[in-house]
Computed example of a mutant assay.
Amino acid sequence: MNAESWKAMDSYLEDILCLRDPRLDAALARCEQAGLPPHGVALNQGRMLQIFARMAGARRILEIGTLGGYSAICMADALPQGGKLVSLESNLRYAEVARENIRVAGLSQVVDVVVGDAGATLDGMVASRVPPFDLIFIDADKKDNPRYMAAALALSRDGTVIVGDNIIRGGRLMDEAGRAQPDVLGTRAFLADMARDLRLTCTALQTVGAKGWDGFSLAIVSKPA
C-alpha cells in the first residue's frame, strides 16, 4: 500500500457513501485558485466532524484555524436552528477566502470568522466569559496546541467534545529528528497535557488517506455541575 492507494480508497469511500457536495467542491476550487495551502480536511474527514457535532448535540462550535472554511461548512451543516460556529483565523487573506466560501454555501448567518492571533482571541473570550462551546475543533499552528487546549478547557462545559487534527505529523511524532521541531514539540506536549488532565477522557487515532499519514485526537470533558 502507498499514498496513491490511500487516495484511491478515499475516493472510493466518498463515491460509495455519496459524500460529494457541490458547495464543498466549489469551496475547494476557490481555495486552490487563491493559492491557499492544501491543508484542509478531506471530504470524508469533514463528514466525520459533522457526525461528531451531531453526536454531541452541538449548538455552539468553536474552530481554531479556519483556512478556507471547508471544515467550517461541514460542521455548520450539523447545527440546529439558532446554532453558531465561531472560527478563528490569523491570516486575513485566508479569512477572506473562507468568508466567501461560507457566503456562497449560504452559511454567513451561522458562521463567524474572527481574524487575529488565535491565542489572544481565545484569551479575550475566556476573560469575557463567553458561553461554553459544545464542540471544539483545534486545527491551527501545532506548536501552540497546548495553549489552545488550555483555552478550550476554559471554554468548555461538562460533555464538550474536543477534536485535535493532524497529530501524527506524517510520522514525525516518533522520529528522533522530528522531536526538536516546533510542531512536533507542540503536538507531543498537547497529547501529554490531555493524558494528565483528569477532566478529559481521550484517545488518538492515526489515519492514512488522501491527506497522507496523519491522525486526530478525540476527548470529552467531564466537569462537576
Score class of each variant (00 low, 15 high):
residue 1 M to I: 15
residue 1 M to E: 10
residue 2 N to I: 11
residue 2 N to Q: 10
residue 3 A to D: 15
residue 12 Y to F: 15
residue 15 D to I: 03
residue 21 D to Y: 00
residue 21 D to T: 00
residue 21 D to Q: 02
residue 24 L to S: 01
residue 33 Q to D: 14
residue 34 A to T: 02
residue 39 H to G: 12
residue 43 L to G: 02
residue 46 G to K: 01
residue 52 F to H: 09
residue 58 A to Y: 03
residue 64 I to E: 03
residue 67 L to E: 04
residue 79 L to H: 03
residue 81 Q to S: 13
residue 86 V to F: 12
residue 89 E to H: 05
residue 90 S to K: 14
residue 93 R to G: 03
residue 93 R to T: 11
residue 94 Y to G: 00
residue 95 A to V: 05
residue 102 I to M: 06
residue 106 G to F: 13
residue 108 S to M: 06
residue 108 S to T: 13
residue 109 Q to H: 11
residue 109 Q to G: 12
residue 113 V to H: 00
residue 114 V to W: 13
residue 114 V to A: 07
residue 116 G to F: 01
residue 117 D to K: 08
residue 118 A to S: 11
residue 119 G to P: 02
residue 120 A to F: 05
residue 122 L to N: 03
residue 127 A to G: 06
residue 127 A to P: 02
residue 129 R to C: 09
residue 131 P to M: 07
residue 131 P to Y: 14
residue 132 P to W: 09
residue 136 I to N: 02
residue 143 K to M: 13
residue 143 K to L: 13
residue 153 L to Y: 04
residue 157 R to W: 12
residue 158 D to Y: 11
residue 158 D to N: 15
residue 161 V to S: 07
residue 177 A to Y: 06
residue 178 G to C: 07
residue 183 D to H: 13
residue 194 M to G: 01
residue 197 D to N: 08
residue 198 L to Y: 08
residue 199 R to A: 03
residue 201 T to S: 15
residue 202 C to R: 10
residue 202 C to S: 11
residue 205 L to N: 08
residue 205 L to T: 10
residue 206 Q to R: 04
residue 211 K to C: 07
residue 212 G to S: 07
residue 214 D to I: 00
residue 217 S to G: 08
residue 217 S to Q: 05
residue 219 A to C: 14
residue 220 I to M: 10
